[in-house]
Design a binder for these strands. Sequence first.
DNA 1: TTGTTTATTGAATATTCATTCAATATAAAT
DNA 2: ATTTATATTGAATGAATATTCAATAAACAA
Lengths: 200, 200
Amino acid sequence: MKTDIRTVRKKEIIEGFYELCKREGLENVSIAKIGKQLGMPPSLIMHYFSNKRLLVLGLIDHILHQYQLIYKPILLKFEKDSSLDPNLLVNRLFSREWNLLFDDGVFFSCYAFIFRDSTIRNEYKKLHLKLRGTLKIILDKDKNLSQKDTDLLAEKIFVVIEGAYYYLSMIEEPKEYQQKLNIFKNQVLELIQMKQETTK
Amino acid sequence: MKTDIRTVRKKEIIEGFYELCKREGLENVSIAKIGKQLGMPPSLIMHYFSNKRLLVLGLIDHILHQYQLIYKPILLKFEKDSSLDPNLLVNRLFSREWNLLFDDGVFFSCYAFIFRDSTIRNEYKKLHLKLRGTLKIILDKDKNLSQKDTDLLAEKIFVVIEGAYYYLSMIEEPKEYQQKLNIFKNQVLELIQMKQETTK
DNA sequence: TTGTTTATTGAATATTCATTCAATATAAAT
DNA sequence: ATTTATATTGAATGAATATTCAATAAACAA
């Protein structure tokens, strides 16, 4: 009753779509290809997603959900602790162990849609606001940061993380990658340990 | 002799391609559409770019060239001055006045290719290295930064700029945009004015 | 059990896609 | 002026595209 066929099948289709995007790139995936991948006629896909835009919207929903699914637990682990280990936090924030689960190419392909689709833009924005909000909660646990503007600090931290995500994607050589990564980790550490402006 | 027809026409095609991408999005532009836009048969386009990948490669070359064309003069103005005004530099680095000339949607659509095309990845990387290099030269002019690791500093500055570029693209409301922008500008200013590690 | 809704199929649609080709025009080289 | 190379055209290709439709099967409600 809860897991009615409609819900299951829609999920199945989106996941097939996502797998194909990983392998072939979003721009090369057609409804027919998704059908072949899943062993179902294209008309069945159209039965659940009445046009391609809805399918892409579904994909983006899936990606952002997954993005959050990976990021949130990393942050939430700190919610229990009363004290904050900045080094541990930074390592977690930059841990890219999820790379196996999460495809950056699909993420950025979908990101490019924000410039021409306001629905998608808002979904992306909502996610990023949520992540900043969670980080603020973590930072507030730290007594060293009490009475500091943790909203501001979360903003500054995440902009480095996102810049790093963008920039590091271009770097293949592991040694170079590690070296740049350390720079950005330090940059965030310095932000946390800096004498921060007080909340106004 | 210098501007032979071949060069002119190829440029014309790429620029038409770019205009269409701005309006309709990279994924919706076909060779036939470019032809219609320029009033030439698709076969002529194929005569100059023997397949679509080469056309996309040409577009990316064009975009990166334009990106650099906008950024470099902003930086080079400082090369003459013997002293450095950090506020002025930061304002220039974040000046988005070029938004009219440069389309962010096309930029990120093309960026997404780096994940599946190593040629494109390297072109993007080359550009970013060059920009960091130029910034380092600027920073080296500042006596306050003498004997500091300006390579490192340039890296830290640009990762904020790029994170900001990514993040601010989601924000429509001008007031909110301005407020976030100021945060990131300050963040870079603090980096410049911080006691920086010495060069090893 | 009957009726009704939903799921699934497979064939068909018109359109658009990248690409090819042969023919012609134009320019450059001799 | 004649040859040679390049530019340009327009028509044609088959494959792939998103989407529609009518028919059947399965699930569900009465």
